[in-house]
Design a protein around this nucleic acid. Structure first.
Lengths: 213, 213
DNA sequence: AATACTTGTTCTCCTTTTGTTCTTGATCTA
DNA sequence: TAGATCAAGAACAAAAGGAGAACAAGTATT
């Protein structure tokens, strides 16, 4: 076991992912599960990186016996720098949402690793925004939003609302006994009024991301 | 390894850059990344300087492997910094930035795990925004921005600019032979004109995040 | 017990990235 | 002038990484 062995970038990334997500996995993840969570398509490719971590002593060698990728004690050394907990929870990227259209689900679900700062401890998912209906609060076309999965919300919260079981949209919500109002953050658009039973809450906005690449 | 080996001016400059910026590099930088961060265009040229540092014993010899430029322990002789070798797969959160104020460094650096979608493959760091100078492109007070570490930018890019070595700000940049203009995205604010040598580029905007918690 | 599926493992083929070397030309210096 | 330093870019071999096929041992299902 070469102590001066340096991990490649991908090996380091896999190791970090394992360390940060060990709480997420009830059992040690299989190669397939890891592929899915990390966005890889080939089990064989991932295996090469795991093999590198085994050689470096960070991962137990399964030897065809036990299933799943298990960290050894050594990974604690790797943690030298960050005494804080880095919880890199993989959050599913569901699809895109536009005013007046149902959520287009992404065919094969991807996962993103987002920081705790822009999510909650409850289950969250990610949508990509199409349209400008929330432009005044800084949510632009193409932005990603992080949604906490919930079926109820308080007045004034920003929610993903499913209207008549067909159209999904991101809006401010106001709920009264006899009507539910969905309010855009764009003064060129109108608030929409519905019967309470027409509107189903699918989650509440907790975070937002944008790429300038 | 010749200890009396004297470094050329450029070699010393590269070494200083590596030492003072090692915390910015999550993983040991490749030659290309170093070129980008230092404003060089030729990997081959940089390689010669790195070779000099390898001969002088300041940098590990990669020996054809692709493992990036790593400092040896010897560089500690060169400078006495409170050093801890920080290599981690997270993006450092440096501090906050406001129009007209220097970057307030966070005392104990935190790290965030951000998705690849809102960063680049080059070294990045995170700042928190104070103020409304970029409000029209959806960057609000309190938002986090992801900055790719670079010292050069193209006209029209959004950069972290250090003015007169004291004030840091996030603005559009326009560079001309005799002046550098920093332009806010807020029509209640004015563009600022400087001598080129007054303005030092510290990075380029590549991503943004916001919490609604 | 027989069958189908999963999982770790190995393999080949492919693309991109990276370290390295060389050549050319510019700039600075003794 | 000659020598050193440096930038830029072309070219190349090796490394890194990814996709997918194939296989054997283990597990699940019938």
């Amino acid at each position: 076991m070469n102590t001066n062995h340096h991990l490649t970038r991908k090996q380091q990334e896999v190791l970090d992912f394992l360390i940060s997500n060990q709480q997420q996995f009830i059992q040690a993840p299989t190669l397939n599960e890891l592929c899915l969570a990390m966005g890889l398509k080939s089990r064989g490719s991932l295996h090469k990186h795991i093999q590198g971590l085994i050689n470096a002593g960070f991962v137990e060698a399964p030897n065809r016996k036990q299933r799943g990728v298990r960290l050894t004690e050594k990974h604690l050394q790797n943690k030298t720098t960050d005494n804080e907990l880095i919880y890199k929870a993989a959050t599913p990227f569901i699809g895109s949402i536009a005013a007046g259209e149902p959520i287009e689900a992404i065919d094969n679900t991807r996962y993103m690793n987002i920081p705790n700062e822009i999510k909650t401890d409850n289950p969250c998912y990610i949508l990509q925004i199409k349209g400008d209906s929330m432009i005044e609060i800084g949510i632009f076309d193409g932005d990603w939003v992080i949604i906490e999965q919930r079926s109820h919300a308080r007045n004034g919260e920003i929610v993903v609302a499913l209207i008549d079981k067909t159209d999904a949209t991101l809006k401010y919500i106001e709920q009264y006994p006899h009507e539910t109002i969905l309010i855009p953050a764009n003064n060129t658009m109108q608030a929409m009024h519905f019967q309470p039973q027409q509107v189903e809450i699918q989650g509440v906005l907790v975070g937002q991301m944008r790429s300038y690449k």
